[in-house]
Amino acid sequence: MENIFYINNKEKRMVHGEEELLLDTLRNYGYSEVKRGCDEGECGSCMVLLNGKPVNSCRVFTAAIIEQEITTVKGIGDIHHPHAIQEAFVETGAVQCGFCTPAMVLSAYHLLKNIPNPTDEQIQVGMEGVLCRCTGYIKIIDAVKLAAKKMKDYEKIS
């Protein structure tokens, strides 16, 4: 099948199998920031935003979401133009092995768009979909708090 998708605000035509999962399609097309973790919808490493909402791309059939909007972590900022959330993750030491980081950043982005000044509990709930095996979450929560402050200061969210 060949279909159009809107990935990181750009129209993208992709060829994919009828039963192919979005995770596989995205990685086949070089979106390697979308990580393959458990393949069961548990770890959240493969998270993307689908029409602005977090989903596990390993649990979404590509054919089920044609012509829809997909955002990967590179859609909100890259190494040359990092988003305030990405800066905050680096500054607080919230990145260790980095495998879960793209999904953590996307979770934080979705959370802060909806709740600009979250409480600790709201952060924990907002980040619940991604597992980290390195940091123990403390620094990740610190990063989200710092990102909230940065975004408030610079009004960086679009």
């Binding site: 919808g41 959240g44 998270m47 689908l50 909402k53 977090p54 989903v55 596990n56 649990r59 979404v60 979770s107 709930v125 907002g126 619940e128 979909g129």
Partner: peptide, 8 residues
Amino acid sequence: ATISIRNR
């Protein structure tokens, strides 16, 4: 489940 699963 989790927020990502509940969205689906």
